[in-house]
Write a protein that binds this DNA or RNA. Structure first.
Lengths: 104, 104
DNA sequence: TTAATATGCAGTCATTTACCTGCATGTCAA
DNA sequence: TTGACATGCAGGTAAATGACTGCATATTAA
C-alpha cells in the first residue's frame, strides 16, 4: 500500500462522497455517480481515477458502461498502520499533558 | 470534527512523520522535531500549524520553547466515520464483484 | 545588559490540484 | 447503418500547496 496515495485520495470531499455513494450502492456506472455530484463528468472521471490509482475503487467494463466497486482493503491498511497505534495511547495522553503542565 | 482538515493534514508524508515522531516521544519542541526532518524550520512550522488546525496536535508554550502533543481523538473519529463502516462489508465485496462478472 | 537561542511572521515561487471546454472513440438500439 | 448514449482523452486555468529567504520578536544565560 502507498499511504500517500490513499490519504491524498481521501483528502478530497468529492472523492469521499463517491465512496459513500458506492457504499450505498456498489457497482454504479460513471453516469449514475455523476448524477449525484454537481460537476462536469470529466471532473468526476478524474476523481475516480485517483480513487482507482489508490486502489480504493476497482472497475469493470460492461459494454459501453464502466462499473465502479469499492475496495475497502486500503482503508483497512490505513487503519492498521495509522489508527490502531494511536488508539492504544489515546487514554494516556491527558496524563502526559497534565504532567507536562505541572513542570514535568 | 472537520474530516477535510484531518484528511488533508494526514495526506502529507512530512506531517505523518511528525505524528510518528510525536508518537515515539510526546511533547517535543519545534527544534527537536526539525532535527529529524530535512527542511527549513519555517516549513516544519507550517506543517505543524496544519496539524494543529486539524486538532491532531496541541501545543503548550514553555518559556521560549513550544511543546507539541499528539491528540489522537480526530484519528479516532475518522476511524468511526470512515473505516468501521467499510470494515463491515469488507468480506461481502468479492461476492458482489463475482456476481457482477457472472452477468448480475 | 548583551549575545545566543527558540520561535513567529511576511513575502516569493514552482508545482500540484481541481475544475473546466472541446473533441474523439466505442457501444447499443432502431 | 445511423443516431443516441456512455465514456475517454487532450489541453487550459485559477487557486491551493509546500518549499524557500529574510527579518522580527521573545526568552534565557553569561
Amino acid at each position: 500500500m502507498d499511504a500517500d496515495d490513499v490519504f491524498k485520495a481521501l483528502s478530497d470531499p468529492t472523492r469521499r462522497k463517491l465512496l459513500d455513494l458506492l457504499y450505498e450502492k456498489n457497482g454504479q456506472t460513471l453516469g449514475e455517480l455523476c448524477a449525484n455530484l454537481d460537476m462536469a463528468r470529466q471532473s468526476a472521471t478524474q476523481h475516480l481515477g485517483i480513487l482507482e490509482a489508490a486502489n480504493l475503487v476497482s472497475t469493470v467494463k460492461r459494454g459501453r458502461e464502466k462499473l465502479h466497486f469499492i475496495n475497502p482493503v486500503p482503508i483497512h491498511e490505513v487503519y492498521e498502520r495509522w489508527v490502531r497505534k494511536f488508539e492504544i495511547q489515546r487514554l494516556s495522553l491527558l496524563h502526559d499533558l497534565k504532567k507536562e503542565l505541572e513542570g514535568e
